[in-house]
Design a protein around this nucleic acid. Structure first.
Length: 247
DNA sequence: TCATTAAATTGTT
DNA sequence: AACAATTTAATGA
């Protein structure tokens, strides 16, 4: 196993807790775009792929750091935020959860800029990544990969528009409902099945509500038959209902 | 594998 | 924020 440096940012604090390891077969099955690659490409990508365990609170990448990897979530839950760590005061912050199956930062990698977001693990997670060079190499020769990235960019645009709507919502139940619906996006987050593994605490952190209020909201959503609350997670019964939740 | 214990999560005040 | 109840994870025989 190569002892490469990874993830990039916050390595000083990360290297202590994160543990690089080889990707096993189970991990590979959870990378949605990998199945779309033909043989010569697939082999190189698997070789370049890095998989690490990330501890809760650990930063996967930080605003301003140069782009080195394109990341995806194998397991766990990450938080994407555009805050500047208190530098600009307590200004409204947009959070987005990244559940299993989600790959992000392709726009930044494409342009070769520095990261525009902080990506932080909300709980113990498994994160995969390919080097920016490999990403570009794939774009240059795999049509399947290009299709994936294009679709990804398109769907994500819709996500951000939805996120702005959610931010404007004041009703807690609606915020929770729509945020949940976003996390169950089948294209962006194919790793999320019927059940999303997320605690009410984590959901509260993501949506910007107290755990108690989230609990109340979830109870209401469950009573309406849109979801089922389970221990350490939520099962979606009616995704459309969640998306359209008003009050 | 099972029973016991510790930790995590939930529901409620 | 604090509490009790419940569920899961960890431990060791």
């Amino acid at each position: 196993m190569p002892s490469t440096t990874f993830p990039t940012a916050a390595r000083a604090q990360a290297v202590r807790t994160s543990r690089a390891r080889d990707a096993d077969r189970a991990d590979l099955d959870l990378i949605p775009w990998l199945t779309r690659l033909a043989e010569p490409e697939r082999t190189r990508v698997v070789a370049d792929l890095r998989v690490v365990d990330v501890a809760p609170g650990e930063l996967v990448c930080r605003v301003g750091k140069p782009v080195t990897y394109w990341f995806g979530v194998i397991d766990g839950l990450l938080k994407m935020s555009n805050d500047s760590a208190g530098a600009s005061g307590g200004i409204p912050i947009t959070f987005t959860g990244v559940p299993p199956g989600g790959w992000f930062g392709e726009g930044t990698v494409l342009k070769g800029e520095s990261y525009r977001y902080n990506i932080q693990a909300l709980r113990k997670s498994v994160v995969a990544g390919i080097p920016a060079a490999t990403f570009h190499w794939l774009l240059d020769r795999s049509i399947g990969f290009n299709r994936f990235v294009m679709n990804q960019l398109n769907e994500r645009l819709g996500q951000f528009i939805a996120a702005r709507e959610i931010d404007r919502l004041t009703q807690p139940d609606a915020r929770v409902a729509r945020s949940l619906a976003a996390l169950f996006h089948p294209v962006l987050y194919p790793g999320v099945g019927e059940v999303l593994r997320i605690t009410q605490q984590e959901l509260g952190y993501l949506v910007g509500l107290s755990r108690q209020r989230v609990n109340e909201a979830l109870t209401a959503l469950q009573a309406a038959g849109a979801i089922r609350v389970e221990y350490g997670g939520v099962r979606v019964l009616d995704l459309e209902r969640l998306r359209a939740w008003r009050v």
